[in-house]
Amino acid sequence: MGATDAQLPIIRLDGRDALGAFALSTEARWNQNEADWQFFLTRGVVFGVRDHDGRLIATAALLPYTESEAWISMVLVTENRRRRGVATRLVDACLEAARRRGLTTWLDATPAGAMVYGPLGFAPTIELRRLRLERAASPAPCPALVEGNLGELITRDISAMGFDRRDFLPEVAGRPGSRLLSTRDAMALVRDGRTARHIGPVFADNPDSALALVTAIVASEGEAHLIDAVAIHAGFLDGLMRAGWTIERPFQRMRFGNASQATLEHPFAVAGPEFG
């Protein structure tokens, strides 16, 4: 069976594959929804493998953000076909597509994934912690929330990422259910996911302001939330856990190639491992 899997061709996917791809991420209990997959399939380069019956059994996505920077994510293999080299082949396809375009590639890896990507030439950058909150513990005094400024979000995101994601952020902010929220000295993007609302990126002048903004968001929505916090902000992380958030897993951000521009600030939370 392993040799058979190794011979299955890698194909390029398109928007018609959204449901099959969504089934894979659902099986893996990931938080992506159909809108996320449509974005990858229409804006990115998504590779896949089908079994002999035509069923999609694996994916990997390359999402170019600029002419020099791209994100690799959505590396998924259905459970009964894992550990047969399919994921490695798909990541290699993404890297080859990036090489042809002259792109530096980034990804957020689990600890197990980091052990695979390191030998391929990926270098570690920042560490992340994914946290989940099922519901705000109790009403607490919160700062007033106002609609955030999309231009300011893009500017701060460029400062944090080192490259421009102005095609990505407006699309996500404009989805039904998305909210771009701000207080006097903090701002965050909130969007729908399959199992929970996702908060990020989050930018703030200090940890207390970031924590106050996140607290106000969850109090205003009353739903389950996920956040991918940047580990260097220890005070922010501690504050989240004191408020009832629990860490689900760590991620290691990694880069293949040279960054085109140095980052000028660290966000308090990122847009998610699928988007960076």
Rank of each mutant, 00 (worst) to 15 (best):
residue 274 E to F: 07
residue 146 V to L: 08
residue 136 A to N: 11
residue 22 F to Q: 12
residue 57 I to D: 02
residue 222 G to N: 00
residue 274 E to D: 13
residue 199 I to Y: 03
residue 26 T to H: 07
residue 251 F to E: 05
residue 54 G to K: 01
residue 12 R to P: 05
residue 148 G to P: 06
residue 203 F to A: 03
residue 22 F to H: 13
residue 85 G to V: 09
residue 50 R to Q: 07
residue 192 D to N: 09
residue 138 S to Y: 12
residue 147 E to V: 14
residue 223 E to L: 04
residue 76 L to P: 05
residue 48 G to I: 08
residue 82 R to W: 15
residue 85 G to A: 06
residue 147 E to D: 15
residue 61 A to N: 02
residue 23 A to I: 13
residue 243 A to M: 08
residue 162 G to W: 12
residue 50 R to W: 01
residue 44 G to V: 10
residue 68 S to R: 14
residue 215 T to Q: 10
residue 123 A to Y: 09
residue 104 T to E: 12
residue 108 D to T: 04
residue 25 S to F: 11
residue 276 G to W: 12
residue 273 P to N: 12
residue 209 S to N: 12
residue 30 W to D: 13
residue 221 E to P: 01
residue 193 G to H: 01
residue 92 D to V: 11
residue 60 A to P: 07
residue 77 V to C: 09
residue 228 D to E: 14
residue 95 L to A: 07
residue 69 E to M: 13
residue 55 R to M: 14
residue 167 D to Y: 05
residue 193 G to S: 06
residue 4 T to S: 10
residue 183 T to H: 06
residue 136 A to I: 10
residue 246 T to H: 05
residue 269 A to I: 11
residue 156 R to V: 06
residue 69 E to I: 11
residue 173 A to N: 02
residue 34 E to R: 10
residue 95 L to I: 13
residue 114 A to M: 03
residue 18 A to H: 14
residue 234 A to F: 04
residue 184 R to H: 10
residue 52 H to K: 13
residue 225 H to W: 04
residue 62 L to Y: 05
residue 107 L to M: 15
residue 78 T to D: 10
residue 243 A to D: 08
residue 110 T to Y: 11
residue 258 N to V: 11
residue 15 G to F: 15
residue 137 A to R: 14
residue 206 N to Y: 01
residue 169 L to N: 01
residue 110 T to K: 06
residue 180 L to H: 11
residue 127 E to S: 15
residue 267 P to M: 12
residue 100 R to L: 11
residue 180 L to Q: 04
residue 23 A to P: 03
residue 179 R to L: 06
residue 106 W to A: 03
residue 38 Q to C: 10
residue 207 P to A: 04
residue 173 A to S: 07
residue 235 G to V: 13
residue 12 R to C: 11
residue 36 D to H: 15
residue 114 A to V: 11
residue 198 H to E: 00
residue 1 M to P: 09
residue 272 G to Q: 02
residue 173 A to Q: 02
residue 92 D to Q: 14
residue 193 G to F: 01
residue 89 R to W: 02
residue 134 E to S: 12
residue 275 F to N: 08
residue 44 G to K: 01
residue 248 E to N: 02
residue 80 N to K: 10
residue 142 C to L: 11
residue 213 L to S: 08
residue 190 V to D: 02
residue 1 M to R: 06
residue 220 S to N: 06
residue 40 F to A: 11
residue 133 L to F: 03
residue 94 C to V: 03
residue 218 V to L: 01
residue 151 G to D: 15
residue 129 R to A: 14
residue 118 G to C: 09
residue 118 G to T: 14
